[in-house]
Amino acid sequence: MNIKVTVLVQKEDNWYIAKCIENGVASQGKTIEESISNLREALELYYEDTTPENINVPTFLTTMEIRL
């Protein structure tokens, strides 16, 4: 079974942090690619013995600008 998840990647100091929006699982790496690869492995372990809930729930992700 394959599922699609929404991933947010942010740089913190010398690391890239990849986080799954749907379940909060996160991982890190020295590059964007490494952080995503590590997150993929973490998610496979997370879902190893369970079926994801709400597989078809759409996630809306956007940006916004605020005045400072």
Score class of each variant (00 low, 15 high):
K19G: 01
N14W: 04
Y46W: 05
Y47F: 14
E48H: 02
T50A: 10
V7M: 06
N56K: 12
Y46A: 03
V7K: 04
E12G: 00
A18Y: 04
C20L: 02
Q28T: 06
I66Q: 02
Y47V: 07
K30E: 14
E34G: 03
E44M: 07
T63G: 07
I32Y: 09
N54G: 13
T6M: 09
A18T: 13
L45A: 12
T62Y: 14
V9E: 05
P58N: 09
K30S: 12
C20D: 03
E53G: 10
V57N: 09
T62C: 07
A42D: 04
I55D: 06
G29I: 11
L68W: 05
E22K: 05
T62E: 08
V9H: 02
R67G: 09
I55V: 15
E53V: 08
C20K: 00
G24S: 12
T31L: 03
E34Y: 01
K30R: 10
Y16W: 13
A26N: 12
K19L: 08
D49Q: 06
T51G: 01
A18L: 09
E33P: 00
I21F: 12
K11M: 13
E34D: 13
V7E: 06
F60Q: 09
K4D: 14
E44D: 10
P52Q: 09
F60V: 15
R67K: 14
L68C: 08
E33I: 08
K19Q: 15
T50M: 08
A26E: 13
E22P: 07
L39G: 04
E12K: 11
W15D: 01
N14G: 02
W15I: 02
D13I: 00
G24K: 05
L61V: 15
I17M: 03
E53S: 12
N38W: 05
S27E: 02
N14S: 13
I66W: 01
I36Y: 00
L61Q: 10
V5W: 03
Y47W: 10
